[in-house]
Design a protein around this nucleic acid. Sequence first.
DNA 1: CATTAATCTACTAAATCGATAGACTAACAA
DNA 2: TTGTTAGTCTATCGATTTAGTAGATTAATG
Lengths: 145, 145
Amino acid sequence: MLSKKCKYALKALEYIAKKGNEEPILIAEISEEQNIPKKFLEAILLELKKDGILQSRKGKYGGYSLRQSVNEINIGHIIRLIDGPIALIPCVSYKFYEPCIECEDESICGLRNVVQEVREATNRILSKVTLADMLKREQRLARKK
Amino acid sequence: MLSKKCKYALKALEYIAKKGNEEPILIAEISEEQNIPKKFLEAILLELKKDGILQSRKGKYGGYSLRQSVNEINIGHIIRLIDGPIALIPCVSYKFYEPCIECEDESICGLRNVVQEVREATNRILSKVTLADMLKREQRLARKK
DNA sequence: CATTAATCTACTAAATCGATAGACTAACAA
DNA sequence: TTGTTAGTCTATCGATTTAGTAGATTAATG
């Protein structure tokens, strides 16, 4: 399950993306509009900045804005950044690979074999979806109503 | 990520399945052979029993055995039983559905739309894989080596 | 230099995870 | 009918993670 932190991150990114890139947006504004605890949001935005997704300016007329384009920002990447591995077991994860302690020989592990398939399927989807896509989906869904 | 508990559950089931269904198997034996803390394993097997997957007998010649056939025991079901939802957000889960508090209208949520796709893909795989399949995969992988 | 707004450090409450201890109960056998 | 065996139930515990708060600090602007 995605953590609240991760959902907050995605909502904040959506909010910033929707407002366009003219001028920086205040943490306080995002916090109020999206109902995210301000102090918590600060930490989240900072993480996104450190990863190069956002940029910020201090002081008056300061705030946050996108550093990457909405087409570059990948949803799977955000999830991994905030929540860590998406894979169900670490021994099938590319980005967070770790051998299972309990497993003597992962090359013959049946569970690993199954979970690897799940991982591939998940990745096939997530690797393609960007922030721009998510916004498009939102518009499409709204039109359908 | 799957919890240790869940991996223990799957390993225990594999162990019981491999030994065949002649006579009940002791918690102590599974614990030693699979390196699972005994007391922890007790709780796990009990859960599997309460769900109807295992059966048990107390006292001498007692122990645990499969109640369902290896073809009936679905891996996704075990994961959901022990760890809860597999879906990345509760609002796309069939078994553990819950609306997102922060979301006003889930029918137009872009994230939900993406995660729903992931869920479908995951489910397509997991709904087909049984304990028997996992054992077969193991044998196939071992032969390939 | 005052104001504004992001950044940094530190802390806390609650929940979850992994595990353990010990009393209790059912099955069997002598 | 009593001792032994082995699963069941209740309770607790330490460590870690999650969600959130408080307050001091730093940088940009006017």
